[in-house]
Design a binder for these strands. Structure first.
Lengths: 348, 348
DNA sequence: TACCATATTGCATTCGCATTCATTCACGAC
DNA sequence: GTCGTGAATGAATGCGAATGCAATATGGTA
């Protein structure tokens, strides 16, 4: 009864050869069929428990791992999610990417990172995205990509936009309710007695900016406050925040400034205190948006509207993890609600 | 002579079908062989220029793209580089990852991100890394992974460690000369007349910490300065920096503190000024390491040792991009030299 | 005992492209 | 005009796992 089983001789010697054991080889060693090996590694496949165990045990011994590439080809499913990013300078994005990629990994999905450099040929860069047959695409870039480019790049593949809403584009969008958040900031200013307020845009054409701007200005008007001025920083950066803040307070009297995101606000905050000669919050209040880690640092203690990163990740993973096709058939726009975080830049 | 060419009819109708055109189909439409199509897309392949052009032109028309998965399987080369990361909180890493992934993309390599969560089963998480047959692995994690785990995960695959040096592990390591950098900081302190100095470690067992600590302490001794105290912050974070700074100045008189990295230093800086009641640099000087973007912010203006990110990226891409096997055969330890950046936290 | 339903297993094929091998063709040299 | 040389092309095979289908085994039933 005892079959002759070839020993896993080639396990350690082939450091140079770099050819891993294949399912067929393993099968031969065990005297079973390659199908059996494949089934042993496929949950729910039709295979008897003892055989599966025998195979898995032996596989572990000789350190066999199914070749994912071959599997992709035959299943036409890669278990890879393409993540398109363009701005890692704003800490909000690394934080999001970190949690997202971990959550994906937890359910067996890998993240292929597409880092879109501004000012380069997008289509060329995204060609790779199309070739790799990723199961779905998650776009985290708040800027840069036009809807058209996106459609081209994802080419009928399930896609989700995070932090960016484009209608009529056949993609699901997930974003926090920017408008309501900005509204809440306006109300908060109002409650603290700041009547003359200003708004600093990041990139004025981005959807996040438009929504935040709209929400803020609308509520400001409703509450009878005065919108003293608006500035367009031109980019979502610390330096831009500094410049915008100084410009805002030049000449005019302002009680409070709402910056389109935290990075701008932090830059503005430093500039106001150090170059503008203002005390914050005594002379002027400041608020941002996102609630990045730095906002909570004691030095900044920035009032902001917190994006529900965990919720975003949860929803994205849910959508991407299950029946991905559904993303295509029923693209939907999902609004998740963030939370106003009152800190010291708007009061004591 | 004019052959009947089938029209690219299936181009727009199959949004639901999701099956892209194959090389064989394209070949049939054009009346050529599948080999020809493959060759048309393979630089340097043996194919006449006119035929190649005809194929490429038609391919562009019907929006054909070679399936990368199939290509991987037959070439047993994925053009994918695995990037293992564990800490995206320290801005140094996102900055590095961003430039690295862009540089890789520029030469046609994609980045598969493996985000290692601390305190989880590493081997399980890295199983995926092994299955995906990445061409090479770049490990950017300064912490967490033991040499043994690494070897297992990369399994004879070319691997490069960035910012971490492990000897006798059959992998190339690239790091800036931490020891010299720390030395330079010590000298800088000395020149500015700070004689009583302190060192704050991040994670004491990491190689970066050991090297920086060694370089600093050694030079301090050589120059006859006094090492007043050392603290181990326990992690490379802003908060840890705050705590460590306050502990350092408790009771003792210190002229200057060198923090193992910028994030710690920035935390320490804020704490010294706001809770410690110190003026920096008048009462106490502060220096960090890495030169993250924040260090240059006017508010911090932190003296630090700048890591040569561009050089690191260049070298890594060079190694990974060319003959990857060489990485295995001749693992080497490469030290790139950074640069002391003198800013206001060590003098005016 | 004979027979059908179900559970296991192996065989052969498929996924889409790269590549080897053989064939054909064109051009020069002798 | 013949043979040699190299380029261009197509047919066929391989990469490694998944899977439809057929074959076999198992168990229960009449």
């Amino acid at each position: 009864m005892a079959k002759e089983i070839s020993k896993p001789q080639a396990t350690s010697a082939d450091t140079g050869g770099r050819r891993a054991t294949t399912a067929r080889e393993l099968a031969k060693m065990l005297g079973v069929s390659q199908s059996a090996v494949s089934r042993a590694f496929t949950p729910g496949a039709s295979i008897a428990a003892p055989l599966r165990e025998r195979i898995l045990k032996f596989a572990a011994e000789i350190d066999y791992q199914p070749n994912a590439i071959a599997s992709m080809l035959s299943k036409s499913r890669t278990n890879i999610i393409g993540i398109v990013v363009s701005d890692m300078r704003n800490p909000f994005y690394p934080a999001l990417i970190e949690r997202l990629s971990r959550a994906l990994q937890r359910i067996g999905l890998q993240s292929l990172l597409f880092n879109i450099a501004p000012g380069t040929n997008l289509e060329e860069q995204l060609t790779a995205l199309r070739r790799y047959n990723v199961d779905a695409v998650i776009v985290i870039s708040a800027t840069i990509l036009s809807g058209q480019t996106l459609s081209w790049a994802t080419e009928g593949r399930p896609a989700i936009l995070i932090n960016r809403v484009i209608e009529d584009i056949n993609m699901s969008c997930i974003a926090c309710n920017n408008s309501e958040g900005a509204s809440a900031i306006a109300e908060h200013f109002y409650e603290r007695g700041h009547k003359r307020v200003a708004y600093v845009a990041g990139l004025s054409h981005t959807t996040t900016n438009r929504e935040r701007q709209y929400g803020f200005i609308t509520r400001v008007a409703e509450l009878g406050m005065t919108l003293t001025s608006q500035a367009d920083a031109g980019e979502y950066s610390y330096e831009a925040g500094r410049r915008a803040a100084l410009e805002i307070i030049k000449g005019k009297s302002v009680d409070a400034i709402f910056f389109a995101n935290d990075l701008l606000a932090i830059g503005g905050l430093d500039a106001l205190r150090e170059e503008g000669g203002c005390r914050v919050p005594e002379d002027i209040a400041v608020a941002g948006f996102d609630d990045i880690a730095m906002a909570a640092w004691p030095h900044y203690n920035l009032t902001t509207f917190s994006q529900p990163i965990d919720d975003i990740v949860r929803v994205v993973v849910e959508k991407v993890g299950s029946n991905t096709m559904q993303l295509l058939e029923q693209p939907e726009i999902i609004r998740l609600s963030g939370e106003l975080v009152k800190r010291k830049t708007t009061g004591l």
